[in-house]
């Protein structure tokens, strides 16, 4: 496999996910964009913190897509 190709591959997926598009990789699964809202979290010590929002990439394997 070409190094240039790997580079292009990761860049394409990164850009498409950043544009909130889902990328389907046939035979493997699907990459999806997911936004996590900010949320309150409480530690055992009683401290309450507000966790910041987050944008993440999630992967759904192909065998779970059909279900």
């Amino acid at each position: 496999m070409d190094k240039e190709f790997i580079k292009a591959f990761s860049e394409v997926i990164r850009e498409e996910i950043a544009r909130k598009n889902d990328v389907c990789l046939e035979g493997v699964g699907r990459f999806e964009f997911e936004h996590q809202k900010q949320f309150q979290k409480q530690y055992d010590s009683g401290r309450v913190v507000m966790m910041p929002p987050k944008d993440t990439i999630t992967f759904i394997p192909e065998n779970e897509l059909g279900i």
Binding site: K41, R47, P53, T56, I57
Partner: peptide
């Protein structure tokens, strides 16, 4: 089942909007 763990670069690039944000302590909300 197949799992995918994004690399550091990918993670920060996708999360660049909120990069560097840390949990904020809510004082008075014990």
């Amino acid at each position: 089942s197949l799992q995918f763990e994004p690399g550091d670069i990918l993670e920060t690039e996708i999360n660049n909007k909120y990069a560097g944000m840390k949990p904020i302590e809510l004082i008075g909300a014990f």
